[in-house]
């Protein structure tokens, strides 16, 4: 069962295609990382899913209901899109009450959420006096207001201190254990790597990858090649550069972030050049390295979009 299912979703603003034939699916009960460089179409996609902007073409289903009928699924969706927006001259509590009344939720839910995000002590203070981290926590409280089945969070850790980030991570895990689906857009790739079990990688409005996080991470590796000899270093660098990869030198080792299959190519070409005992260590690449490969345009080896 998928919480979100999109087929060929497109949205243009003037001549620019913000979302361009996006096809993706997000399984229910997962924490899905939504990543891509600035301008990839992440926020527009989230706005499409929330019924805030209308698609030009394509279809999508959220919690089993079509995108064209947001009133059927939004009562079960919580969202924090972009920087949280509030009425600065009202208190945190009143800001939350405004939305609770609008959605028809009881006042007791407001108190409960202020406790959850650790804002009960400052609930009566004007939001204008809140720090960025406090505003972010209030934004998370707003998203949690309907006790949502699907939680859409855009940069929820923005402005939080390390403790706040750890708290958010814990909260997300607790929500997943409670059976919630979470779509998480973030530039904190290390954080995403720790909590997500599904990934959607967006580039120029299209999904480059949509599938289990471990599958994406397996597409790319980091090679660590022991090369004390300058001639060997030069050979390895030349082979890597010829394949479009950059080498970084770290003490007596060279590091190459590359496609999983490149280790074999390197070994073969080094052997052809007379070096048969090259010590190559293959490490899993981090999400950050994958993301860097994406923004540098080195995306050809991410494979075709994998749509389960």
């Amino acid at each position: 069962m998928n919480a979100i299912e999109a087929r060929g979703l497109s949205k243009r603003f003037g001549k620019r295609a913000a979302v361009d034939g996006l096809t993706m699916s997000i399984p229910a009960g997962s924490i899905t990382g939504f990543i891509g460089p600035n301008g990839a179409g992440k926020t527009t996609t989230l706005r499409l899913l929330l019924g805030l902007v209308r698609p030009d073409s394509g279809t999508a289903f959220v919690l089993g209901s079509p995108l064209t009928q947001p009133s059927r699924y939004l009562p079960r969706v919580g969202a924090l899109v972009e920087a949280p927006a509030f009425y600065p001259s009202l208190s945190g509590r009143t800001n939350l009450e405004v939305l609770a009344r609008l959605g028809g939720y009881p006042g007791s839910r407001v108190d409960e959420l202020l406790e959850t995000v650790d804002l009960a002590d400052r609930a009566r203070d004007r939001v204008g006096t809140y720090s960025l981290g406090m505003k972010q926590r209030l934004g998370v409280a707003i998203a949690l207001l309907p006790d949502p089945e699907l939680l859409i969070l855009d940069e929820p850790a923005n402005g939080l201190d390390p403790l706040g980030i750890i708290e958010i991570r814990g909260l997300l895990r607790r929500l997943r254990e409670a059976g919630k689906t979470i779509l998480l857009s973030s530039h904190l790739l290390g954080e995403l790597e720790q909590v997500t079990d599904w990934l959607v990688m967006l580039h120029e409005g299209k999904a480059l990858f949509c599938g289990p996080a471990r599958d994406l991470l397996a597409l790319r590796v980091e090679l660590v090649i022991e090369a004390r000899d300058p001639a060997r270093r030069e050979l390895v660098t030349r082979i890597a550069n010829a394949s479009g990869y950059a080498c970084t030198q770290d003490d007596d080792a060279l590091r190459i972030s590359c496609a999983a299959g490149f280790a074999q190519i390197l070994n073969r070409q080094a052997g052809e050049a007379g070096v048969t005992d090259l010590a190559i260590q293959v490490k899993d690449a981090s999400l950050e390295q994958l993301f860097l490969a994406l923004v540098k345009g080195d995306v050809h080896d991410l494979g075709r979009p994998r749509i389960p």
């Binding site: 019924g51 899109v81 609008l102 959605g103 207001l145």
Partner: peptide, 9 residues
């Protein structure tokens, strides 16, 4: 955007 997510009508 907060308001229209809570009241899509």
């Amino acid at each position: 955007r907060n308001l229209l997510v809570r009241q899509p009508n």
